[in-house]
Design a protein around this nucleic acid. Structure first.
Length: 616
RNA sequence: GCCGCGAUAGCUCAGUGGUAGAGCACUUCCAUGGUAAGGAAGGGGUCUUGGGUUCAAAUCCCAAUCGUGGCUCCA
């Protein structure tokens, strides 16, 4: 069997499981009204309306037992067709209003996909002109469902599955619609593959940045400060600073200059940029007691940066002008959308804006891609990019020729940098095409982390200009870029990617010194060595506490410290240490003794060169 | 914002109508130790907040806040 055949087979299994689960639910709750039950990554779900019955995970056993009976019965999936009007009657007779709505959409528009349907038409009753003659059904035992298929032959051939969770969803994703319950299951061709998937989820839970953030003392939340507003401890702040210093230094090498802009601004700025109209309800409002100005917390930096650009007349010779600012912006996100560091209301961006001529776009994009490449190589994440193009809709501003040229330039730059890429139409911003970066973490999950965006719209709205060679006024192009994206979000990804085992350069504590006893000569020696390490710019902690050596070693392990050094009489006599190296970064089992000076210099070098593995 | 679930010591959690517990952490003392937990004693909670029901509420009801699983959204 080819990979494609296997994929098709797995798809059919998952889809069949959705039907089997629906069958079980109908047996258990005969009044169930069914929505849709599609295949998703790793499994399937079915949306059901059970009236006042609220499902919980405790009901899963019951459902799984009913499902396994259906699977054991091994009844065939039988396909048949009905004319559309008979199908609608079937839904009416069966008390299935959601199916009836889908069938009406199918009759009128030939599709049930909400986003392809005109909003006013969605769910309205068709008035004749049938787009579809017949629709297909699948029947297994007593359960019949509107379905395009395909399915496996019979209910016995569905592989391994497990019900995972239940949650509230809106019918067709619109909050004006009734709420249903979505039961989601994982499903794979074999129990072994299911096991691998469940193990990955268990590993993901172990690495959850919210859990590690508390265990490793990286950040905290306070009820008095508010939701979505993380407070970073000294350890967490170290990581933030190392990351942002890295992207700042990197961009400085490419000619970016730091700017600084205030965190509040008059609302006028965002009225001009168009953000007030589009995102006004997500801006924090600030009231002045001195003036009548209506102020907002800044939700982004580009409008500010345009003000700096336009503060002087610019010649074509001055371009490109490159600004960078790592700064916090504020967005009043809906409460249900907040979570850990992944989505917060105070977002720190390593933001940059290039103002350049058309003919400079490619070089500038090139530079930013080189930065992204270097950053993600350094953190050890595989990167691929999505080229996000416009489609044929009228959702975009600017001339089509301009777009086509820009899209071609983006693609050329991506290829020139040897980046793994794919193209997708309809994913562009309204003002220009984008390059979106997806990074794969250590357990195979992909995260969107950064974007580079071309912008033709804001330069025009803000009437930005430069004087061209021929003396004419021209409008520059703006390139937005954030490499880490949101530092908070990046940290959530980074913590989970590393499982809290930070490499030397970001480790909040790089070296821990453990004294064997409390003799003053021992503790003084440890302090002296610590000072020597600090003088080399290292982050070092001395553990002179009154605990057994075994206990102190264990603590250092739990804090995931890269290097732990035990000091006692032997070290004082020889001025040599045998560093204990965190397992993930060790390259050999037995580490020989090394002079203290050489050890500390080596570690300092490793921190500077941002290596992932030790050279000891 | 919507639906579901939750909030008890610094952390992880037990207690389901009669006035609060464990492990770890913390403090002190003993032990002075050699690469993942030495021993003993002790301190610590108006049970998130505000209302209500009840003779009596951590426990039942309502609301707020925060968290969490989903949906929707993400310049």
């Amino acid at each position: 069997m080819s990979d494609n055949d296997n994929q098709d087979q797995l798809h059919a299994m998952r889809h069949s499981l959705a039907h089997i689960m629906a069958t079980a639910i109908q047996q258990l709750w005969p009044a169930s009204k069914f929505g849709v039950g599609p295949v998703i990554d790793n499994g399937f779900y079915y949306d059901v309306d059970l009236g006042d019955t609220k499902l919980s995970e405790e009901d899963f056993d019951k459902i799984e037992v009913a499902m396994s009976d259906i699977i054991k019965a091994n009844l065939p999936f039988e396909r048949f067709e009905l004319p559309i009007d008979e199908a609608i009657q079937w839904a009416k007779d069966g008390g299935q209003p959601y199916k009836e709505e889908l069938l009406n959409d199918l009759k009128r528009a030939g599709t049930t996909v909400a986003k392809d349907l005109n909003a006013e038409e969605l769910g309205t009753i068709a008035d004749g002109a049938a787009q579809v003659e017949n629709v297909s059904f699948y029947r297994n035992g007593d359960f019949t469902d509107l379905c395009r298929g395909p399915h496996v032959e019979s209910t016995g051939k569905v592989g391994a599955y497990k019900l995972m969770r239940v949650g509230g969803v809106y019918w067709r994703g619109q909050d004006s619609n009734p709420q249903m319950q979505r039961i989601t299951g994982a499903a794979f061709a074999s129990p072994k593959e299911l096991r691998v998937y469940l193990d990955m989820l268990a590993e993901a839970r172990k690495r959850d940045h919210r859990k590690l953030g508390a265990e490793l003392d990286l950040f905290v939340f306070s009820d008095m400060v508010g939701s979505g507003l993380p407070l970073f401890t000294p350890r967490g702040t170290t990581i933030r600073d190392e990351l942002s210093n890295f992207t700042n230094d990197m961009r400085a090498r490419y000619g970016f200059q730091k700017v600084w802009t205030p965190h509040i601004t008059k609302k006028d700025l965002y009225e001009k940029s168009g953000h007030w109209a589009k995102f006004g309800d997500e801006l924090f409002l600030v009231k002045s007691q001195e003036t009548s100005d209506e102020m907002v917390m800044k939700p982004m930096n580009c409008p500010h940066h345009t003000r700096i650009y336009e503060s002087q007349p610019r010649s074509y010779r001055d371009l490109p002008v490159r600004y960078m600012e790592t700064t916090t912006i504020y967005r009043d996100e809906k409460t249900g959308e907040l979570g850990g560091l992944s989505r917060v209301r105070a977002v720190t961006q390593d933001d940059s804006h290039v103002f350049c001529r058309q003919d400079q776009i490619e070089t500038e994009i090139n530079n930013l891609l080189a930065c992204a490449h270097e950053l993600y190589e350094t953190v050890g994440m595989k990167l691929r990019v999505r080229l996000s193009y416009r489609d044929d809709s009228d959702a975009y501003l600017g001339a089509v020729e301009l777009w086509e040229a820009a899209q071609a330039q983006l693609k050329a730059a991506v290829i020139a940098n040897g980046l793994d890429y794919f193209e997708e139409a309809g994913e562009a911003a309204f003002y220009g095409p984008k390059i979106d970066f997806m990074a794969t973490d250590a357990i195979g999950r992909e995260h969107q982390v950064a974007t580079v965006q071309l912008d033709f719209v804001q330069p025009e709205r803000f009437e930005l200009a430069y004087t061209a060679e021929d003396g004419s006024k021209q409008t520059p192009v703006m390139i937005h870029c954030a490499l880490l994206g949101s530092i908070e979000r990046f940290m959530s990804v980074y913590i989970e990617h590393t499982a809290g085992k930070f490499p030397i350069w970001t480790a909040p504590e790089q070296v821990r010194l453990i004294s064997v006893n409390q003799e003053s000569v021992t503790t003084a020696f440890a302090e002296e060595m610590a000072q020597q390490a600090r003088d080399l710019g290292l982050r070092v902690v001395v553990d002179n506490s009154n605990e057994s050596v075994g206990k102190k070693i264990r603590d250092a392990e739990l804090w995931k410290v890269p290097y732990t050094v035990v000091v006692g009489d032997k070290e004082i006599a020889s001025r040599e240490v045998i560093p204990r190296i965190r397992k993930d970064m060790a390259v050999r089992d037995d580490v020989p003794a090394i002079g203290i000076d050489e050890f500390l210099k080596t570690v300092a070098n490793e921190a500077r060169s941002r290596v992932l593995m030790t050279s000891l």
